[in-house]
Nucleic acid binder design. Structure first.
Length: 692
DNA sequence: TTTAGGG
DNA sequence: CCCTAAA
């Protein structure tokens, strides 16, 4: 029985994940740290990816040589229930830039283009001569992130709408347009007795794209598109006061300084467990886990990533290497995006904020009021890079001097398709937030197709200049619109049954079928319906008393699972080829999979272990596992080996140095003797061969 | 996949 | 517990 609630997600700000989380497991380990660093992937990457994606398309289409009909190699998507198959991913060529149509689920942003009043913008705006493809800069702003971001309050009540988009930026927020009355509905009897809260998020919007700041400050400037290698800028900003351009920064994966990141991270207060876990990161790590070799673990992981449909096997699903692969590719992609963004950083000039604010060393970010604030600096020319203010002025000046014929766009809103999230009631608000965030992130990661609509008609020819397309600074540009379509190629099928008729369909279909809903499912804490130890354990078998769930899940495990569920966010496929722009090294995602919860061995477990080892000896952990812990799913042979190792160590040290639940001396003695015995045996085996 | 060990 | 090289 599943209780599904539809909560009005309201208009809370959408916190763009910024800080790739370094799992606790990292604990200062070099290797882990390194990995975490390597795999840093944050929202910025994501946006960078989007931008890069757009950019790439722009390039493709603005380059005469390239066909505007970039072949889209369709890869028939296997829609079977198996996640592995589902994720099988094949290289795909860039999809046509112009989708040609935009259906209901297409994201349509309200864009208005207006002619700058006071002064003309020279570098910031696009020349009417620019081709449509060059039009893609996407400015995003994540308001309210710094302060409370998507707090539980805002999630539920969702009435705190952020107002007044900042210059040159678009703010992400859940629009309040869509309000879903709470309702409860029982789930289809799939066997599990869980309660889930379902949160549906309506359309989202991006706030103002281009500020109206043109009149005030004379504006935002972009280098002449023609003279730079046009890279659509993507700005991300959190908090209404400052804007952060998203540049793929080499040091910080396009994010801010560590400090900044921390600020963000820390704000995630109601997370007790692994915070800021990123789905993609998680998934990425799953890939690594491939080699761990424990099928069970892998399965478990898999179940975390995809819908944890409780099955007779205990809710375990197959893991998918394909997915991992996919994720890696995504990372790769996004990194490439970053590079392009970085590139752009040098060529674009902008002054998006009315009031000059502090600029960080790099001239990119700055902190303010404890909130996550950043300021775009002018990197117009490298020489100006470090001084936002002066650059600003310079920029303004040049703006006013610039010629006319530039059109200015203002995207008032950007709607993200409906999101459907399923989460157990027992999950924390924090996990809910994360899930939402990750879902959206995942969604965005797929990249977007940008379409241009002029008076309702889609402007397909990317090589036309704005002027030719009828987009001039003078007239009828009010009806200019953009369509942002998810660039999904396959449908994440972790969805809830088939209640939603239109999901994302492979976009390789004739008509693009953008997703209309993204679903994320968080498995309930008890989603691991492990057979209630129905079998009678063999003599030596240790039966975990509080085996996975069922019996009063501790708050720890409960939370753990809840947080694990974050990985269940759907991760749309990405058109890797299209996004491939940035080199891989930097922005993989941070590690996602969290460390397994610590489950201290109980005395009975220790006893079972000792007994098994006495009998089998060391070095046969697999057998020990089978013999004594076959029913303890969470104990792997590696765990047993480790435990033995610690037991031996414990037995050797003085009692007062021991920690944790004291192990009966009797057992420790047995450990020592068994250890001595088997060590001897091993030594014998080692020596024998040579004499013989 | 397992083992064996270092972290 | 994690991570991995080796077997």
């Amino acid at each position: 029985m599943v209780l599904q609630k539809r909560l009005d997600y309201g208009s809370c700000g959408y916190p763009v994940p910024v800080m790739p989380r370094v799992p606790k497991s990292a604990r200062g380990k070099r290797s882990v740290r390194k990995k975490a660093e390597e795999s840093q992937m944050c929202a910025f990457d994501l946006l960078a990816a989007v931008a890069g994606n757009l950019l790439l398309e722009a390039e493709n289409f603005s380059t005469p040589n390239k066909s505007t009909e970039t072949p889209c190699i369709a890869s028939p998507e296997d829609t079977t229930a198996k996640s592995e198959e589902r994720n099988t991913e094949k290289p795909v060529k860039a999809e046509p830039y112009d989708q040609g149509s935009c259906n209901k689920s297409t994201l349509v942003s309200e864009v208005s283009v207006q002619r700058p009043r006071s002064c003309q913008i020279k570098r910031q705006s696009y020349s009417p001569k620019a081709t449509l493809s060059e039009h893609v800069p996407v400015f995003m702003k994540n308001e309210g992130f710094g302060k409370d971001g998507c707090s539980g309050h805002s999630i539920v009540d969702g009435h705190n709408r952020v107002s007044g988009g900042s210059p040159g930026l678009v703010s992400w927020k859940c629009s309040s347009e869509k309000i879903f009355p709470s309702s409860a509905e029982s789930s289809e009897g799939n066997g599990d007795h869980q309660t889930k809260a379902r949160v549906q998020i309506g359309k989202w919007k991006l706030g103002n794209l281009v500020d109206n700041n043109a009149h005030n400050h004379g504006t935002c400037n972009l280098e002449d598109p023609m003279e730079l290698d046009v890279k659509p800028p993507v700005f991300i900003s959190s908090d209404s006061s400052v804007e952060a351009p998203f540049y793929g920064d080499h040091n910080a994966c396009g994010v801010a300084s560590p400090k900044l990141r921390n600020a963000v991270v820390d704000r995630d207060d109601d997370e007790n467990l692994s915070r800021n876990t990123h789905p993609s990161i998680m998934t990425y790590r799953a890939a690594r886990l491939r080699r761990i070799g424990n099928r069970r673990i892998r399965k478990l992981l898999a179940s975390r990533y995809w819908k944890a449909t409780p099955t007779s096997k205990g809710g375990e699903l197959c893991n998918s290497d394909a997915q991992s692969k996919l994720v890696r590719k995504m990372c790769y992609t996004s990194q490439r995006m970053q590079r392009s963004s970085f590139k752009q950083r040098k060529v674009f000039e902008r002054c998006s904020s009315p009031a000059p604010k502090a600029v960080s060393k790099e001239g990119i970010f700055s902190l303010g009021k404890g909130a996550f604030k950043t300021k775009v600096s002018d990197s117009h020319t490298t020489s100006h890079g470090a001084n936002g203010q002066s650059s600003s002025r310079i920029g303004q000046k040049s703006l006013c001097e610039s010629e006319d014929f530039h059109v200015k766009f203002s995207i008032k809103s950007f709607k993200v398709p409906e999101l459907l999230i399923e989460i157990p009631e027992t999950a924390t608000v924090g996990s809910l937030k994360r899930t939402v965030m990750e879902t959206v992130t995942a969604f965005l990661e797929g990249g977007l197709h940008v379409g241009v609509l002029l008076q309702g008609k889609k402007v397909r020819d990317d090589n036309k200049t704005l002027l030719q397309a009828g987009i001039s600074h003078g007239d009828k540009i009010d009806n200019l619109g953009f369509t942002l379509e998810p660039k999904l190629r396959q449908a994440p099928q972790i969805l809830m049954g088939s209640e939603d008729p239109h999901f994302f369909l492979p976009s390789d279909a004739k008509e693009p079928k953008p997703l209309s809903r993204i679903t994320a499912i968080i498995p309930p804490p008890t989603s691991d319906p492990r057979p209630f130890d129905a079998t009678i354990e063999p003599p030596l078998t240790f039966v975990d008393p509080e085996s996975d769930s069922i019996h009063s899940p501790t708050s720890e495990s409960l939370q753990d699972k809840a947080s694990n569920s974050r990985a269940l966010v759907s991760i749309p496929a990405v058109d890797v080829e299209a996004l491939a722009v940035v080199p891989l090294h930097k922005s993989k995602r941070a590690e996602l999979v969290q460390r397994r919860i610590r489950r201290p061995f109980t005395i009975s477990e220790v006893e079972a272990l000792v007994q098994a080892v006495e009998k089998l000896g060391t070095g046969r952990w697999r057998d020990v596992k089978v013999r004594a812990f076959d029913n303890a799913k969470h104990r792997t042979y590696v765990d047993l080996k480790d435990k033995w190792k610690t037991l031996v160590h414990t037995a050797k040290i003085s009692p007062h140095q021991r920690r944790g639940e004291p192990v009966p001396q009797e057992l420790l003695d047995r450990v020592l003797s068994a250890h001595a015995y088997w060590s001897q045996q091993q030594a014998k085996l080692q020596v024998k061969p040579s004499p013989a």
